[in-house]
């Protein structure tokens, strides 16, 4: 029983990171119907930004998150302006290949400048907060969970309550019609893409603080896993992506308990494959039919 609750707590903390990344996929997929394979790299660069801040300037938790946000936002903004805007019309396969190229480029460039070795992060709030019936919950876990929830709620408020958010949702529905209705489609896509990048950047900071390590290749696995999470919850729906992220974190932690740690990365893939085969729209996604 204790173990189950403990795994649940760990799963929710980890699931928060996946939820942030999954929502990043979902935002981009919504407005551009593109899967941005370089999300994992943005995650990594957010973490690198936080590491640089903590090592050379000041070691501060909140400021790290801000840096993650800024790095992710700026990077995604630039990527969209220089590349994805000009390739918007081409086939989905080609644009996916392009994002793979960017991901490879960012990872390797970071490996070159930052070094290939894994570096340690300073610890924040390491003392445990409380212990209930043998379950340890640290302050770090609590604060990370809270931070993720705050970011997710803010994003939901932005998308569902503001005028800009309405524009994002309209473009996601049908960007030609949205353009005809006087919405600046280019700017809306740019903002959605940058916000998606910012989410990934924050997730990166949270990830490197939680695992206490930073490396140039840390983005690979979380990037792919959270795509599985997004598919699991429904790529076309933002609440779905959040739900998928949290469930994926929980499933993964229980899975590791049941099988062995060697199969940790297999679990999320298997969940994704099962969902793609039997329920491709995900838990909360809209069903979409293709017409000739």
């Amino acid at each position: 029983m204790t173990m189950i609750v403990q795994q649940l707590v760990n799963g929710i903390t980890q699931g928060g990171l996946y939820a942030l990344l999954a929502i990043s996929y979902s935002l981009v997929y919504g407005v551009m119907s593109l899967v941005n394979f370089s999300t994992g790299s943005i995650y990594m660069l957010g973490a690198v930004g936080a590491w640089l801040l903590c090592n050379y300037l000041i070691s501060d938790f909140l400021l790290s998150l801000v840096v993650g946000f800024a790095v992710g936002f700026a990077l995604a903004f630039i990527l969209e302006k220089i590349a994805f805007k000009s390739i918007r019309g081409i086939s989905r396969i080609s644009s996916l290949i392009c994002t793979i190229g960017f991901s490879q480029m960012l990872n390797e460039l970071t490996a070159l400048l930052f070094g290939k070795a894994t570096k340690g992060m300073p610890s924040f709030f390491s003392e445990k907060a409380f212990e209930v019936v043998g379950v340890t919950i640290s302050w770090l876990q609590l604060i990370l969970m809270l931070a993720v929830v705050v970011v997710l709620v803010t994003l939901q408020l932005f998308v569902y309550k503001t005028k800009m958010g309405l524009a994002v949702r309209t473009v996601a529905m049908d960007n030609t019609t949205a353009g005809l209705m006087g919405i600046n489609v280019d700017r809306t896509i740019s903002i959605a893409f940058s916000l998606a990048g910012a989410c990934a950047g924050i997730a990166g900071v949270a990830g490197c603080i939680y695992y206490r390590s930073v490396s140039a290749y840390m983005g690979w696995i979380p990037g792919i896993k959270s795509f599985s999470a997004a598919v699991f919850g429904g790529l076309s729906s933002m609440p779905g992506a959040i739900l998928g992220g949290y469930l994926m974190g929980i499933i993964e932690n229980f899975g590791v308990q049941i099988f062995s740690t060697g199969y940790r990365d297999v679990i999320s893939f298997v969940v994704m494959i099962i969902f793609l085969l039997f329920c491709p729209a995900g838990l909360l996604g809209r069903k979409k039919t293709t017409k000739v």
Binding site: I224, S228, F269
Partner: peptide
């Protein structure tokens, strides 16, 4: 048999996932 009915992007990620699963199984 499992993946060819999927649309292009999902097929890409499913095959990649399966590739990783196969590699990890062989490794363990």
């Amino acid at each position: 048999f499992a993946t060819l009915r999927l649309n292009d992007i999902f097929l890409a990620f499913t095959t990649m996932g399966l590739g990783e699963v196969i590699r990890i199984i062989i490794q363990n």
